[in-house]
Simulated scan of single mutants.
Amino acid sequence: MSTIRVVWGTASGPTAMSSYDAALADAGVENYNLVSVSSVIPADTDVEAVGTAPDLGPVGERLTVVEARATVAGPGRASAALAWSQSVDDGPGLFYETSGETDREDVERRVREGLDAGQELRDWEFTEPSVAVESTRAESGRHTTALVLAVYGKSEPIC
């Protein structure tokens, strides 16, 4: 059985990329190459909301993630949300993500609606959903990123 860790972070910087990199550092995954996947949780997988990732392997390796991310040029607000639910009896599950220049309540509402829609497409009996939300205000003249990631397992060599 493997583990998916849900991590999150926010940060500001002089450019969009610098704020994104700093938000990844806040979440503990700045030293990896991220590969985004769609939102299916494999059966027999634990999902843990940990906030900041532990050591997941050597620098430069690949991490598989589901990513919710918003980057805004201030002033404004960056918000990101990730919701998940697994089927009962250790079956598969779903992640849903959303983000935007909006408040915490709006992204949480939208991600819950998305997860509900995804659950309706499947013949699985789901557990109660979990949600992680990051939201922060962007100062004028600064780029700001809010992100929530589901990180699948540990890193793997990229080449």
Rank of each mutant, 00 (worst) to 15 (best):
R5P: 08
W8D: 11
W8Q: 13
W8Y: 15
G9K: 00
T10V: 12
S12C: 06
A16V: 07
D21M: 15
G28I: 07
V29H: 04
V29Q: 05
E30K: 14
E30H: 15
N31E: 10
V35F: 14
S36H: 04
S39R: 09
V40H: 12
P42Q: 15
D46T: 13
D46S: 12
A49L: 15
G51E: 10
P54W: 02
P54I: 02
L56R: 09
L56Q: 10
L56G: 11
G57H: 06
V59D: 14
G60Q: 10
E61W: 13
R62G: 08
A68N: 05
A70F: 01
A70E: 10
T71Q: 00
V72L: 01
G76F: 03
A80T: 11
A81C: 10
A83I: 07
S85F: 02
Q86I: 05
S87V: 08
S87G: 15
G91Q: 03
D103G: 15
R104D: 00
R104N: 00
V107M: 01
R110L: 10
V111E: 03
L115A: 03
A117T: 11
G118A: 07
E120A: 10
D123A: 14
E125F: 07
F126M: 04
P129T: 13
V131K: 05
V131E: 03
E134V: 07
E139F: 01
G141C: 07
H143S: 03
T144D: 01
T145M: 02
L147Q: 06
A150D: 09
A150T: 08
V151R: 11
Y152E: 13
G153F: 05
E156D: 03
I158P: 00
C159Q: 09
